[in-house]
Amino acid sequence: MSKKLSVPEIRVTSAEQQGIFAQAADPITPLKEIDMNGATLVELEDIVKAAHQSFQSHLGDALQAGLIAGKALLMAKKQFTYDRQTGGFRGWLERIEVSKSTAYRYIELATNEPIVSQARTLSEAMERLAQHRAEQRALQAKEEKVEIKRRRVTLKLSDKRDQKLEKIAQNRGVDISTLMKEIIEQWLASQP
């Protein structure tokens, strides 16, 4: 027994089909057309949920778009050398109508992808970057403080001993601070 193919009763034109695809690609379109003045609380709840879901998904898309733009900008930046006539990379940004601050925000996303990859939205990614920058500044400040404490040693030597140290340092081909460091390290190593 052969099976008959069923033909749909309603045919759709290509223009109508494109409209259906566009509506499916942009879930906010049907929400724009709703008259909310006479909507019930249940209908408004559905509208809010659909709009919120669209908003959340678009924020995730914004983060992905920012990462892609940042990677492309990094690649483009490598191809530029500064030219007074064209302005180099910054001149190119002006020509493609992307502000310098936006471009560098995209670049920051791309260069810190491991930090922002767990974020669900662009704003969450930017918060993570801000927190990372603050942690890095605190860590750097702590390291600088430690290094400064380590370097600040004042020795009061007689002129004769100071000249002797300078002569020894010259003979070894190092500066006085390097010589002092070597002497102190040797002395510390000899201590029990």
Rank of each mutant, 00 (worst) to 15 (best):
M1C: 12
M1A: 15
K4I: 09
K4Q: 13
P8I: 13
I10M: 05
V12Y: 08
T13F: 14
S14L: 14
A15W: 06
A15E: 15
A15T: 14
E16D: 14
Q17W: 12
I20E: 11
I20C: 12
A22M: 08
A25M: 03
I28S: 13
I28P: 03
T29D: 13
L31V: 04
E33K: 12
I34A: 15
I34R: 10
D35T: 07
M36S: 12
M36T: 14
N37E: 13
N37I: 03
N37W: 06
G38V: 09
A39C: 15
T40V: 06
V42M: 09
L44T: 08
E45T: 09
V48W: 00
K49E: 08
A51T: 13
H52M: 03
H52I: 12
Q53D: 05
S57D: 07
H58V: 02
G60I: 00
D61Y: 12
D61R: 09
D61I: 11
L63K: 01
Q64L: 02
A65W: 00
A65P: 00
A65C: 06
I68M: 08
G70Y: 00
L73V: 01
L74D: 04
M75F: 01
A76M: 11
K78N: 10
K78L: 07
Q79F: 01
F80N: 01
F80M: 04
F80Q: 02
Y82S: 08
Y82R: 09
R84I: 00
R84M: 10
R84Y: 06
G87Q: 01
G88V: 02
G88C: 07
F89K: 02
W92S: 03
L93I: 05
R95T: 11
I96C: 14
K100C: 06
Y104N: 11
Y104G: 02
R105F: 03
R105W: 02
L109Q: 00
L109V: 02
T111K: 02
N112A: 11
E113C: 07
I115S: 04
I115A: 10
S117H: 13
S117R: 14
Q118L: 08
A119S: 12
T121F: 02
T121H: 03
S123M: 09
S123L: 09
E124A: 07
E124N: 07
A125W: 00
A125H: 01
M126P: 00
E127I: 15
R128C: 04
L129N: 08
Q131F: 04
R133T: 05
A134S: 07
Q136T: 14
R137E: 12
A138G: 08
L139G: 05
L139R: 15
Q140C: 10
K145F: 05
E147W: 08
E147Y: 07
E147K: 03
K149L: 07
K149Y: 13
R150W: 10
R150P: 00
R152A: 04
T154E: 11
T154H: 05
T154Y: 04
K156E: 05
S158P: 03
D159I: 09
D162Q: 14
Q163H: 11
Q163E: 15
K164N: 06
K164I: 09
E166F: 10
A169R: 06
A169N: 09
Q170N: 10
N171G: 13
N171T: 06
R172M: 15
G173N: 05
V174Y: 01
I176S: 01
I176A: 00
S177L: 11
T178A: 15
I184M: 11
E185M: 13
Q186G: 07
A189Y: 08
S190Y: 12
S190G: 14
P192N: 14
